[in-house]
């Protein structure tokens, strides 16, 4: 592994200062960063260790949601009683991501910041607009099956966003809290990750030296049920081919609120707002769910090896809505 300078930060202010003016990277759990430094895909000259920052709590907000510290580990977040009860979809998404060892180290902020799994990005040599802007995209005409998107792609990049946690957060509704050289600010979770467009190397809304401190979740929808369905090549420790986070609230059998987000198929955590709008007021039937699934995947672009993801995602959506609605009814599933 290449050499780098190391600074351990005690608070956010000293972290931002240590990061500033350097080719630096913030080091949280390191499960993506150290991997990519070993592969020489990321080449920081300084790592700023933020593991001792006091953003390690999960607090209830005045609005009835939760504020999650940037350094809360994925295992701790998934096992939190409030998350399991009020944000089942988030707990389930976390527990279906990576392996137990990785979840024990991976942090909330690090998961938001994780990089794509595209083999051409990770190999360090193939043309890749994300790694070397302007060098071309090897995936569009290459092997583009497992970790490649069908929604939000461009002529410059088709890598899928790899996170499960972020898909659940996109469905729940969340806010990213950020600090940096010019103070604190917040970014709506749905605006945080960027579409690749013609600048796939710009992946998120963070400015120079900015640091995520917390992610807050919107209050849970009263009486809703939620779930995360992840379809993949093997049943554990694998990235999604297609996944769906669904939150459904019912009045009798009529849908009063629906939240739908997709993973494995989008270049960012993909909120399916049109499908949600079409569900509200409908009866919670398989027909309505199939219609929503069709709406959600309407604009999808298939590539040579991943066209199967479009019907697969539709199935994930129907299944997730069915299960979430059953939970909203109080069925024990």
């Amino acid at each position: 592994m290449r050499t780098f300078d190391y600074k351990r930060a005690d608070d956010a202010h000293s972290a931002v200062n240590a990061h500033s003016g350097q080719a630096a990277a913030y080091l949280a759990g390191g499960t993506t960063l150290i991997d990519l430094v070993k592969l020489d895909v990321m080449q920081p000259e300084r790592l700023v260790d933020i593991n001792r920052l006091a953003y390690d709590a999960i607090e209830t907000t005045a609005e009835g949601g939760l504020r999650i510290g940037a350094m809360v580990r994925n295992t701790a977040l998934a096992d939190d009683d409030r998350v399991r009860r009020d944000y089942t979809v988030l707990s389930e998404a976390l527990l279906q991501g990576a392996s137990r060892q990785l979840r024990n180290r991976a942090t909330t902020a690090g998961n938001v910041m994780q990089r794509v799994r595209c083999s051409y990005f990770r190999d360090g040599v193939s043309p890749c607009n994300k790694r070397v802007p302007g060098s071309g995209c090897s995936a569009i005409e290459g092997h583009n099956r497992e970790v490649f998107a069908v929604l939000g792609t461009s002529d410059h990049c088709i890598a899928a966003h790899p996170s499960d946690m972020c898909v659940a957060m996109a469905a729940i509704g969340a806010t990213v809290h950020v600090t940096g050289p010019s103070g604190d600010r917040t970014v709506d979770f749905l605006d945080f990750h960027k579409l690749p467009g013609d600048t796939p190397h710009i992946e998120h809304e963070l400015g120079e030296d900015e640091l995520i401190t917390q992610v807050s979740l919107d209050a849970p929808i009263d009486g809703s049920g939620s779930t995360y369905i992840k379809l993949r090549d093997r049943s554990s420790y694998q990235f999604a081919l297609a996944s769906c986070a669904a939150v459904v609230a019912l009045d009798g059998d009529r849908i009063t609120a629906a939240r739908l987000a997709l993973g494995g198929v989008g270049t960012k955590p993909w909120r399916a707002a049109d499908a949600e709008a079409a569900l509200v007021g409908q009866p919670a039937t398989r027909e309505a769910f199939k219609q929503a699934a069709a709406t959600a995947m309407q604009g999808a672009t298939p590539y040579k090896h991943n066209a199967f993801k479009i019907p697969l995602a539709r199935k994930a959506i129907v299944r997730a809505l069915t299960d979430a609605a059953a939970r909203a009814r109080g069925d024990t599933t």
């Binding site: 190391y6 390191g30 790592l47 295992t75 137990r100 990785l102 024990n104």
Partner: peptide, 9 residues
């Protein structure tokens, strides 16, 4: 806690 020591500085 179980951790991958290859990814831990």
């Amino acid at each position: 806690q179980a951790v991958n020591s290859c990814l831990a500085l």
